[in-house]
Write a protein that binds this DNA or RNA. Structure first.
Lengths: 191, 191
DNA sequence: GTCTATACAGGGATAGAC
DNA sequence: GTCTATCCCTGTATAGAC
């Protein structure tokens, strides 16, 4: 023993992110994560001295990933219905990590400082992208001119996060229903 | 010492509920709650042998409270806009406890069994009432006949919970924005 | 019904060898 | 970079006196 395994940072963050999504930031221990990736908790502390370091690293990467996804989506199409369709699908996909923000938000008060910070940044990044998309949709007359950009962005993100969150309880069709209704609202703007 | 203080069950559950709302079900200990109500943790265990007992008692009472609120609301008016207005206000009020469901949902996987059960019941109670209100609104032609009752109920509850949850992060205007947009959608049904 | 005291498991984190 | 061993704290829960 005591040989280098050179656990990749990516694998580590992947496992950590999975644990946060499933059990919440306080729902797993260094020992849990260490066991999962096959090293000792002391070795884990070598990579991330404190839990705050670990959590905020996960959130930072997650934020980057979403920013890249949004940028790619923005480049891919200017069509609002298409943008929203792809976006909501990404969020609704259980294999993807739309859950993370909600888990962090729910346990925000118990998060260590750097992680709180990253979580706020994640939230404002997502809201910012949504607001940009809504603004552009208005310019293209795909949404009513009276649309309040901020309100719409908050509503859409709240819906997505709330749907994911309530879906955790186990009742079927929550996210599907919420998305179906939202689509109805979005595709049939007021007369 | 060792005199009876006869801490009232109500005070106990109140404090516990407050702690769950603020820190989540796993974010406080028997010692925390005991200190708050001014008894020892051992005394607390006398009232609630396990944490599962404590949590599920809180959720049960909470569920009852919402059922009574909904029933009162149903009796008070049949007007859908008014019902929704009062309801969303109740949920949005920070002094009230609309948070609870979201906190429980986020940490659902870490909840002990009875508490999971109660949480599911809470969720289905709330969804059921919302669905009933939507159904009645359709009958009164206050919502489009094509409205999918389940979808609408899931969407509204998701929005409320998502808004409350994201509001915890500290960004201002989330819940307000989400509600403003929802009102827009509800008051201006498709042409 | 309340207390003190305590058991026991699990958490984050560190020391120091290899 | 990894390990074993360990520290110290906090969590749930119990025993037994008053």
């Amino acid at each position: 023993m005591a040989k280098r395994k050179d656990i990749s940072l990516t694998d580590l963050l992947d496992s950590a992110q999975e644990l946060i999504r499933h059990r919440g930031p306080g729902g797993f221990s260094f020992r849990d994560l260490a066991a999962e990736v096959g090293i000792s908790s002391a070795s884990l502390h070598h990579h991330f001295p404190t839990k705050d370091d670990l959590l905020s690293a996960v959130v930072l990467r997650h934020r980057d990933a979403w920013n890249r996804r949004f940028a790619a989506l923005a480049a891919e199409t200017e069509d609002w219905p298409r943008r929203w369709g792809l976006l909501s699908t990404k969020f609704a996909s259980p294999s993807l990590d739309g859950y993370l923000l909600g888990m962090l938000a729910a346990n925000f008060g118990s998060l260590p400082p750097a992680s709180q910070n990253e979580t706020q940044l994640l939230h404002s990044n997502l809201t910012g992208w949504l607001a940009r998309f809504v603004t552009e949709a208005k310019k293209r007359d795909e949404l009513p001119q009276e649309t309040d950009v901020e309100a719409m962005a908050h509503a859409l993100l709240s819906m997505l996060q709330g749907g994911l969150l309530l879906g955790r309880i186990g009742a079927p069709g929550v996210m599907d229903g919420a998305l179906r209704q939202t689509d109805e609202w979005l595709e049939h703007p007021r007369s």
